[in-house]
Every structure is written in C-alpha cells, then in structure tokens.
C-alpha cells in the first residue's frame, strides 16, 4: 500500500512514510528480541541441563555449555513405568477436560449471548466473576466437598487421578464461556434471524452457523483449556498422593526429588518432554486459528 502512490507531489510524504515504517520495524525487532531472549533462555537452560549427567550438573563448570552430552536422562525417563503412567494420566485428564469444557462453555455461551431469559445478563457477569476467584482459595472447600461426597456416595474421590476430570472444569469453564460469549456476541443478530427464517432450530443455528463462524474463538478456548489442565499443579498436588495417581507436573517433582537430592538432569528432561504436547497442539491449531482470524478480518 505504501508504494501505490505515483504522483510526483506525493513523493515527500511517501518517503517519510517509508522511513516511518522502517523505524517502526527496527523498534519492533529490538523489543521482540529482548522479549524472545527473556522467554527463551529458561527452556534453553533446561535443554542444556537435560543433556548433562548428574556429576556435570553439580560440577562447577559453566551452566551454559555441555562438555559430555548424554541422552541417558531421556532414556531413563522414557523407559520409566512411572513416567509413562504420569504421562497417560495427564493426557487422559486434559483431553477429557477439554471436551467437557468446550461442551459446557459453548452451550452456556450460546444461551447467555443469544437466548434472552430472566437473569441471563446477571448470569453472564457471574460467570466472569467466578473466574476472578483464585484457585488457591477454592481447593480447600473443594477438598471438603469431595470428602463429603465420599461419605455420602461411598465412592473414593480423593487420591484418584480421574477425579481431576471433574475438578478442572471449575477452572476452565468460566473463562472459556466468557471468551465464547464475546465471540458469539460479535456475530450479527441478523445472521441467526436469517437462519431462523430459513427454518433452523436453535440447535441448528448453533451447529450450522455459530460454531463455524466462531471457530477462531473455539480454538482459542480449546488451547486455553488444554494449557490450564495440562499445567495445573496445585490441584493434583493437593488431591492426589499415590505414585500411580499422579499427573505429569506433580509426578516429575515428587518422584525425581528424593529427600534433598534433586535429580536436575531428569527434572529438566521431564519438564521438556512435558512441554512438548502443548507445543504440538499450538503448532497444529495455530494455522487454523490464524486462518480464521484473517478470514474474519476481511469479511467487510
């Protein structure tokens, strides 16, 4: 667009516009580099440490270089039965939580954004307020609730990894619902009215119009729900204790720290391996996410 002007009179502003743009670019790169360095250093440090033997970690050499790289840490973890159990637990919990969260929050957001009923506005605000309550305040009451449920139903909830599938949505649903309300509210009212005139039921308006149109929002919410449930540390720490009931983040820390012996090499390896699935999911969904965003932007 900046090269489109051709009249000689427009030359000076055009030059300054180009220069303007160049400076904007330079500053962008400066700050992005600082940002990238800041956020990439820890993972690099983790990666370097994961290639070291315990002896080299504790030796007084520079932490930023490996003298005798080894894959032992990786071998140890990938062949460890415990680590595999943690991994499986985490995958099952996160997948189920994402599915449950999206089901609940899409339906909730649709009804809150579109079906005006008594108290719908208050409810929508309430959903957001719930999200503002920190989870650190909630885990003790939740613990009490599950203890009570145990008494009533005789089902053991505490120290069972699958109970986190019930627990995590309390963290993810409010925020995801809130995101989805925003996306759904931005869809013009005439679109659902047109669909209703075309003979669609509410459910069809949701599945045939709202979900496809709000796909970027749904993907954003999915990523959020997955990240939260994958990385959640406090709840599994509080609610699960037996080794075979642990999720990845807690499992790494509790089994690789024995007393005051920190197995740094393996801790770093575990953390890196644990960070892999979210990375893969980001990479996979980001394409759709960005495609969806730009499609919306040029809709006009």
């Amino acid at each position: 667009m900046s090269t489109a002007t051709a009249t000689p009179g427009a030359a000076p502003p055009r030059g300054s516009m180009k220069q303007n743009r160049r400076w904007a670019l330079i500053w962008s790169y400066v700050f992005l580099s600082i940002f990238a360095a800041f956020f990439l250093l820890p993972p690099i440090y983790m990666f370097i440490t994961s290639l070291k033997t315990s002896a080299e970690v504790s030796a007084a050499t520079t932490p930023w270089w490996v003298h005798n790289p080894t894959l032992d840490n990786y071998k140890a973890l990938l062949t460890s039965r415990e680590f595999m159990i943690f991994f499986r637990n985490s995958v099952v919990v996160s997948t189920c939580v994402v599915i449950i969260t999206m089901l609940i929050s899409i339906l909730a957001a649709f009804s809150l954004a579109r079906m005006k009923f008594w108290g719908s506005a208050t409810l929508a605000t309430g959903v957001f307020l719930t999200y503002l309550v920190p989870d650190t305040l909630l885990f003790i009451p939740l613990f009490k609730i599950f203890a009570w449920l145990h008494e009533v139903t005789d089902i053991q909830f505490i120290n069972r990894w699958w109970m986190l599938i019930i627990l995590y949505p309390t963290l993810t649903v409010p925020f995801c619902t809130w995101i989805m309300i925003g996306y759904f509210a931005s869809i013009p009212k005439e679109l659902d009215e047109a669909a209703i005139m075309d003979g669609a039921s509410y459910m069809q308006v949701l599945t045939r119009i709202f979900i496809p149109v709000a796909l970027p929002g749904i993907i954003a919410a999915t990523i959020f729900a997955f990240t939260v449930s994958w990385a959640q540390f406090l709840y599994p720490l509080a609610f699960t204790t037996s080794t075979d009931q642990l999720l990845l983040p807690v499992g790494i820390v509790t089994t690789l720290i024995k007393g005051d012996v920190f197995n740094w090499g393996q801790i770093m390896t575990g953390a890196l391996l644990g960070a892999l699935p979210p990375l893969v999911i980001y990479a996979f969904l980001m394409d759709y996410y960005i495609a969806g965003l730009t499609a919306g932007a040029t809709k006009g």
Partner: peptide, 9 residues
C-alpha cells in the same frame, strides 16, 4: 435483511 446477513462461512 438490510445488511444481507449472508452466512460468511
């Protein structure tokens, strides 16, 4: 409709 309300997708 005034703004056409075509299904964008």
């Amino acid at each position: 409709f005034q703004n056409y309300a075509l299904y964008p997708h």
